[in-house]
Amino acid sequence: MVMELLGLAGLSALVASGAGYAGRWGWRGWRARLDGDGTGETPLVLPPFRPITPRAFVSSNDQGAFGEALSCVMMAAEGWRPINGKPGPGPQGVDGIFVRMGEAGFEARLIETKTNASRYAARQMSDAKLGEDLTRLYLTCGDPVLGKLYARLYKGLAEGDAAIRKQLWRHHLARGVTEQVSLDRAGEADGPVRLVQSHVFLEALAAGLDELDRGRRYWTGLYPS
């Protein structure tokens, strides 16, 4: 009985204090603060794009690797699958080889990625140089499925197959945009430059790397001061 009375007394005190609090500030006042503009709907604004500067990377090589990873993410979003383009542990080879089965059958894209102001030489994407890269990949891959794909790419390049295209991508990390241009057989620009908004992919990749590289071996931080 005593505990029940104490419980009722505590409840009464809580209600009384709440009533006094509401009387002093007003429930409507709190509701208005939650509503923001008083219309019942708080306007939402997304945070602006925050550019990534070269200082975010430990070295220029890490910046280049980030750009290649960004190309992979963007291509994967369109249904392309990446396959290895480098026969060894170093940077030599093809930055990106992407394949998929489209409505018309097999398609492939060979992409050279440049990040910010890194230099590009046409010979990097000439048919002759890519043919050598594909030959090394075929001889060293040790996988019959990949070997068949490399052989198909080699033959397609030699024959000028329209299903196999070459492109140069340049990511501008401070602007969140990517320039894309097709390349001819000599690796020279062939056609207009297409400007693509890539900031959403860039921010997603940066956020993931910020968590993955907590030891800061490659990545100094998402937005360094």
Rank of each mutant, 00 (worst) to 15 (best):
G102H: 10
V73G: 02
P192I: 09
K148A: 14
L14Y: 09
V181H: 03
W219F: 05
D184P: 05
T39Q: 08
G191R: 02
V73Q: 14
G67D: 04
G7A: 13
R175W: 02
L157W: 05
T39C: 05
R31D: 10
L205T: 06
V145R: 12
F98Y: 14
L202G: 05
L34H: 08
G67C: 04
R100F: 04
M1D: 08
L149A: 09
V58W: 01
P47T: 11
R214E: 08
R28S: 09
K148M: 11
A117T: 14
G7C: 08
E68N: 06
G156D: 01
L8V: 07
A19S: 13
E203C: 11
S60E: 13
R175I: 04
Q180V: 15
W25Y: 15
G88W: 12
P51M: 00
R109C: 04
K166V: 07
W219K: 04
Y138L: 13
R109W: 02
G20T: 11
V73D: 09
R55Q: 12
E78Y: 06
C72R: 15
G187Q: 00
W27F: 12
A19M: 06
S182H: 11
K114C: 00
W169G: 00
G160V: 00
C141L: 00
Y138H: 15
N84H: 07
F201Y: 15
R170C: 06
E188W: 03
A76F: 05
P47D: 13
G102M: 11
W25R: 15
F201W: 12
N84T: 06
L34F: 13
E4Q: 09
K129T: 01
V145I: 10
C141G: 01
P91E: 14
L195G: 03
G85A: 02
R55K: 09
L11H: 07
G176M: 08
D210C: 06
Q63M: 15
F57R: 02
R165A: 15
R194F: 12
A162N: 11
L146I: 03
R81N: 14
A163N: 06
A77C: 10
F49I: 00
A122H: 07
E159W: 01
L222T: 10
F66S: 04
D62N: 06
W80V: 03
M101R: 15
D213K: 01
F98T: 06
R81G: 14
A206H: 09
R216Q: 01
T113S: 13
W27K: 02
A158G: 03
Q197Y: 09
S126R: 05
R165N: 04
F66T: 08
E188H: 10
G160A: 05
G96Q: 15
L134H: 04
V58A: 01
W30C: 09
A9S: 12
G208K: 07
S182F: 13
A108V: 01
R50L: 10
G64R: 05
L146C: 02
H172L: 12
D161V: 00
A104T: 13
G131T: 00
G79R: 03
G142N: 04
A117K: 12
G93I: 02
A13L: 13
L168V: 00
P144V: 07
C72K: 13
L34T: 06
A163K: 10
S12G: 14
G215V: 01
R100S: 03
A108S: 06
L173S: 04
